[in-house]
Amino acid sequence: MRCPECGCQDDKVVDSRAVKEGAGVRRRRECLKCGHRFTTYEGIIQAELKVVKKNNILEDFDRDKLRRGIENACYKRAVRIEDIDRLVDEISTGLQRDFDKEVTSAEVGRRVMAALKALDQVAYVRFASVYRKFKDVEEFIDEIRSLSDQPKS
């Protein structure tokens, strides 16, 4: 690590702490030449996950796009930002864990729908209507009926 003060590459680690629930490390360092102290962060760099679209085009997995889709479904609903953050984290982490290099857009959609169904049924129906491309009102009504037929938790 290069000292930001003098540019020397010789330093020692003074203190290390886990950050982001163990997903990274914060290190306090001291330059052996000038004594300047500075902080560095280390984290895991995930392998680039690709999404295989319906037309077989590969696209980089975009966490922000996932977030926008969930936010749009939850628009003007009583869903907290913390819950949206949690869903995005859970879905992203699950995809990274379960798939090596490629995941289908259908699998991403299934996971989002399952998460939204448990969080907010109106947001779920909104997302499903776009994701499944309901062709008419009957498909929309059938989806809503299927929700009302399920036992309440």
Rank of each mutant, 00 (worst) to 15 (best):
D11W: 03
K117Y: 00
R97S: 12
C6F: 05
E82L: 05
D15C: 00
A73W: 03
P4K: 09
A78G: 10
S92D: 11
E102C: 03
R80Y: 07
L66Q: 01
V52G: 01
V108P: 01
C3Q: 05
R37E: 06
V52D: 07
D98I: 04
D149A: 15
R80G: 10
A78D: 15
D136Q: 11
G35M: 09
V122Q: 05
G35D: 09
G7M: 09
F127N: 02
E30N: 08
D10R: 02
D142G: 14
S146W: 03
R145H: 14
K33Q: 13
V19I: 15
V51K: 05
R145D: 13
L87Y: 02
Q96F: 13
A23H: 13
D100K: 15
D11I: 02
G94V: 03
K65E: 00
K133T: 14
L147C: 09
P151G: 11
K133I: 12
R2H: 12
N56K: 14
V25Q: 06
E42W: 10
A78W: 06
V112W: 03
A106C: 02
T40K: 07
Q121W: 01
A18F: 14
K152S: 06
K135R: 15
E143I: 10
G43P: 00
G69Q: 06
E139G: 14
D62F: 07
S148M: 15
K50C: 01
G7A: 10
R111G: 05
S153E: 10
I45W: 00
V25F: 07
S146C: 07
M1G: 15
K12R: 11
A118W: 03
A106T: 12
R110C: 07
V51S: 05
F134R: 08
C3E: 05
A23S: 14
K20A: 15
D120N: 08
V137R: 12
A18S: 15
Q121R: 06
E42H: 11
I141D: 14
L66N: 01
K50V: 00
R27Y: 02
I70F: 04
T39I: 10
F134T: 11
P151L: 14
E90C: 12
R29S: 11
G7S: 09
Q96A: 12
E102K: 09
L119H: 03
S16G: 02
N72Y: 13
K12D: 01
T93F: 14
F134H: 08
K152L: 10
M113E: 00
C34R: 11
V130S: 14
D60T: 05
R77F: 04
M113F: 00
V137W: 10
T93I: 11
I91R: 01
G69L: 07
E102W: 02
R26T: 09
N56E: 04
L116Y: 01
E30R: 15
V112T: 04
P151V: 15
I70W: 05
D100A: 12
L147D: 02
A47F: 00
L116I: 02
Y41R: 10
R132I: 13
E48M: 06
C31A: 10
